[in-house]
Design a protein around this nucleic acid. Structure first.
Lengths: 280, 280
DNA sequence: TCGACTTAACAAAATCTCGTGTGACGAACA
DNA sequence: TGTTCGTCACACGAGATTTTGTTAAGTCGA
């Protein structure tokens, strides 16, 4: 399996830094591992999972119920089955625990593009949201987003001008979408926007959901400069709906784990690529 | 700058509904008392407060910092000074700890006016927000609001259709205001709206803030039926900006502690008044 | 109907959160 | 320049939340 445990939960250990070989395993981690297993093997039985993680079947059921609620998998009489490709990839809950380090690095790099006093637009991506802590250092800033989690985080920063784009709440993304949102964006203007997407191929950005595409497009249109935030995992995939050609973005920021051929492929399409150095 | 840690937590009292006379004194209560003291005496020293409540000076400092952040008072080298009159009255943090029981009762009563499947509009008042737990029982419902705290709470309810009105974030109210918000409301239509305000006299509702008035007016206009939620403390005050005449509301809901003369005064103005029974 | 899978309910355990104090350190006042 | 005030960093403990297992009572499919 070769799980690179990309510490989803921050260090909850505390004391005894010496040896932790196997069993910290909070429920969050376990669910992450279950997800990978199911995604990898197509389906796994609850019984199997129970033994594998050394927890009761009840606990496994609870995990599976939660993952099912998040839309990551389906469960039916003892077996967890992977969701048809793509549909789970746009879940906050799922996205939030994937490639955390890469996202942090990209976000940190992106934050440097924000001038003091600027108006900033963030989309409903976990990557864009990771910029926020960096933004805290340079108010007065205007930051707009349709991502509920980000709004909550922003609201706690002092001297920060926070704008909510309205819309209909979407559980899967924890964000506000729809006409209301699009209209709201249309009536504003931003210095810089940070947008992410789930897939990039052949000089185009893609996303598997229609209504998300509509919002992101409007975001790009409403900003003077617009940066696309990616991690390398996005570069090998495709998705249903075409978002925009990459040259519509002022720059595309990727993490340092991006393979060279992917980079040169991007550059072929006249895209200004920036590689974010590893987080320090 | 400094990132502010968590919101003031909501009721953490829990059990023991009977009597609390003197010494449980959570920080919330203590801050309430500090507020009263400062409001009453104009200014109080940290030293004084430390002795009066039997806590360390450090703790007093933390209290004062928090209250200052909430806009209730100012603090400078050991003394806390009252904020110019009125400005603190519209703070979430301040409002949230006043007349909790009355608000609960009013909210519970108001919730009965919501039909299953209805579209509901809530303003940025703590009273209106208290309706939410009752709403959880009857989805599918559409609920719109500009109150961030309420949005967060709503987002956790399953099968609930949640709509965010956009706008510029306002720390004092923990809500979104401004043109964006007004425009968003204007483009929608609701079955029922629940609105509160800070003062009622002479057949009119008042509020001390301009931009809030603008939003509330639009809310009333956008709803087929609209109910004004009050507790008795609002009936003896006035405020700067006139909101609307009371007969614009389908009904006015008050708590049972409302004095009789206040009730009859309301009825004189052709207002349909409903008295919410005490919470059970 | 049988046997598995599921869920509900309760209690125990692990964990996290919050409020608080202490002492060290820096900043402001006199 | 010394003294007082304010803040930071850490630790401790009570209380609340979350996580978990167990037992018992459903459900579903064959």
């Amino acid at each position: 399996m070769t799980v690179k445990h990309g510490q989803t939960a921050d260090e909850r250990t505390g004391r005894d830094p010496g040896h932790d070989d196997a069993r910290p395993a909070g429920p969050e981690d376990r669910r992450g591992l279950i997800t990978e297993l199911v995604l990898d093997r197509g389906s796994v039985s609850a019984q199997d999972l129970s033994e594998r993680f050394g927890v009761s079947v009840m606990t496994v059921h609870r995990d599976l119920d939660e993952l099912q609620r998040q839309g990551v998998l389906r469960k039916s009489r003892g077996v967890a089955t992977a969701q048809p490709s793509g549909t789970f990839e746009s879940n906050v809950a799922y996205r939030r625990r994937v490639n955390t380090d890469a996202k942090k690095a990209v976000a940190a790099h992106a934050a440097r593009l924000v001038e003091p006093g600027a108006s900033v637009l963030l989309d409903d991506s976990t990557t864009a949201a990771r910029i926020i802590p960096h933004l805290a250092a340079l108010p007065p800033l205007t930051v707009a987003t349709n991502y509920l989690g980000a709004l909550t985080e922003l609201s706690r920063i002092e001297n920060m001008h926070v704008v909510a784009l309205g819309g209909t709440y979407d559980v899967q993304h924890d964000s506000f979408l729809g006409t209301t949102c699009v209209e709201a964006i249309r009536s504003m203007r931003f210095d810089v926007a940070f947008v992410s997407t789930s897939a990039v191929t052949a000089g185009h950005a893609y996303h598997q959901e229609d209504r998300i595409v509509a919002v992101k497009r409007e975001m790009v249109a409403a900003a003077d400069t617009c940066h696309l935030l990616l991690d390398h995992s996005k570069l090998t995939r495709g998705a249903l709906h075409r978002l925009l050609p990459l040259d519509r973005f002022t720059s595309v920021i990727v993490d340092s784990a991006t393979p060279d051929d992917a980079l040169s492929q991007l550059r072929e399409h006249d895209v200004r690529v920036e590689v974010a150095p590893d987080a320090g």
